[in-house]
Design a protein around this nucleic acid. Structure first.
Lengths: 343, 343
DNA sequence: CTGAAAGCGCTTACAG
DNA sequence: CTGAAAGCGCTTACAG
């Protein structure tokens, strides 16, 4: 790497580094001549200020960190996109980290983001408030939680009210005749995993449906666990006639196995997924989903983070969720529960 | 933000900052007593070294940049995941940027990554060698191109041989009876856009199929342009009976419109997509695709970048592509070209 | 408007 | 093994 510093620019321009610095950072206290020569010299040398050195003196870096729990989850890929665009519009660049649903990896990235002195961090947190999440708070680094929260931590957040959507989904399945609904849950180490599970449990109880604990499979929000969940649920002596998956990757895993087992979704078994992914509507049958707005979530998270960075303490925001009934959630097949030849 | 520096640690530990620094960075030249007191002090103060300051003195930052052309494209989300894991295994942290298929945004991120002095950059480049891509080369920043390249730039790359897969796809469509194949192309500002288009053109010519230029629609690799492409192609006086989409987001856009128009894929019209996305196999009919390995691409890119960082100059790698025939690419409907009532 | 100088938080020869 | 000192590339009061 060829290192071109402000010294080189100043030398070529025939001014002091102080003047060069002033021109380069747009200080008004510069003469037109100085400006011209410095700008020319910088261009000629293809000078790029060293952000590290600059950050050492300045108090801000014009960058934020976004720590997402899984980039391969389309919900978070979309979130990354929205956050990035909103941040860019506000003059901030986004450094994206991927926890891949692993606590150690979350900690590793958080350390990196802290070390690099981003001005603030938007994080979809994992686990309890231990590890690097705690450091974030202790050091008063501007932080906003998105999608998920951590119990006992007083951090502004933008989340989804999963309860409404899940209740609608369960009620809809009950209305078309399902009584045994299998639930593929997210991990209980995440707030969304817990909230959605609790909402499911309550809905099922309130509606007088089966509360058989065997009907719940605990996955990890990634695709493979959706497949394992379907396997486990279909092996039950009394398998469910409908399935509710707590996020889209697990739904994808579920669909793959359902296909492999020769079960027709929407006929042999009903399926509803949390998260509305563009192509879920393209499946045949189109997937019924619980939808919430990732655009709103990303946009609001950035807005809130900028407020925190500016010294404010914004109120947390809870976004709505709602059931979109498409074709995958019809009545149970006649003769349900599913007879053994299907499984 | 509460700033805890090495001075605070040294003071609490009762040693000089030099000694504190040695302990903290694992230098062997430290006494057990010094080690103990510094480690304790650091833990007590929850000290995190300032990466900026450290990078100013050290020559490397143990971080690499990954600039992806579109995070919402599952191919690149998967690539981000693979690169990240491979880098982490080698002790590097990955800073992810998203160009969103826009040159200005690519430049913006590249500037940021350069300024932050990452040790190297993996980039799926956009456009010609102007702008920040040129700076990268001029400053000899270790760079590896992934998926795409830039003409005239001598940068190690790992790409896919699109030619084979596309030729197989066209030959397969021809074999089942299609003569007018519509091609939804990627932008000509990308090497993959150009290569795949050229491969399509050659294949169509070699096999004696229609070379009607109207059968080609130039999209931008994002979903909306896939929809527009289908619209345009189906409005032709003699519409195609088969469609080939140059990447998966455009295929998604195409499928959505095909559904909306009431055309049954695999019956009324054939469709093949470049890129094998997990759930393409879950569609009904399952989508025939041109597949290439994103895992290999990511893994090799990191391996090559580490070589470049280490002073080597690795050979570029070209990965194979191949057609996976599923159900969406069957023979043209009887009475094709598609009669007006379908369009 | 400009330059010399101090300092941001680290690391690392240099002496001892 | 340890400390004082220089220096990485910038920015910013301080004088002028």
């Amino acid at each position: 790497m060829v290192a071109i510093t402000i010294k080189d620019v100043a030398a070529l321009a025939g001014v002091s580094v102080a003047t060069a610095s002033r021109v380069l950072s747009g200080s008004p206290a510069t003469s037109p001549e100085a400006r011209a020569s410095v700008v020319t010299a910088a261009a000629q040398l293809d000078y790029r200020p060293n952000a590290q050195a600059r950050a050492l003196r300045r108090t801000h870096t014009e960058s934020i960190g976004l720590l997402v729990s899984d980039v391969r989850n389309p919900f978070f890929a979309d979130l990354a996109h929205t956050v990035e665009q909103a941040a860019l519009a506000a003059g901030y660049v986004t450094l994206l980290g991927n926890a891949n649903e692993r606590k150690e990896q979350q900690d590793r990235y958080l350390e990196t983001l802290i070390s690099r002195r981003v001005d603030g961090i938007v994080v979809a947190p994992l686990g309890d408030g231990s590890g690097s999440i705690r450091s974030l708070i202790k050091r008063r680094i501007p932080t906003v939680f998105v999608d998920r929260t951590v119990d006992g931590l007083d951090v502004p957040s933008v989340t989804t009210d999963s309860e409404t959507g899940i209740r609608q989904a369960v009620a809809h399945l009950a209305a078309v005749g399902h009584t045994r609904i299998g639930y593929i849950s997210g991990p209980q180490a995440t707030s969304t995993g817990r909230d959605r599970f609790a909402a499911f449990t309550r809905a099922v109880a309130d509606l007088g449906l089966s509360q058989d604990p065997e009907l719940v499979y605990f996955g990890d929000f990634q695709a493979a666990s959706g497949s394992l969940g379907v396997h486990a649920l279909l092996e039950l002596r009394r398998p469910p006639t409908a399935l509710l998956a707590a996020d889209s990757p697990m739904a994808v895993g579920a669909i793959a196995i359902l296909h492999k087992r020769g079960l027709r979704i929407g006929r042999d078994i009903a399926l509803i997924a949390f998260d509305d992914i563009e192509w879920f509507a393209l499946l045949d049958p189109a997937l019924s989903v619980i939808s919430h707005s990732v655009e709103d979530m990303g946009r609001i998270a950035v807005k809130m983070l900028l407020e925190v960075i500016g010294g404010g303490s914004p109120e947390s925001v809870v976004l709505p969720s709602e059931l979109l009934i498409r074709e995958s959630s019809s009545a149970p097949a006649p003769g349900a529960p599913i007879s053994p030849e299907f499984v």
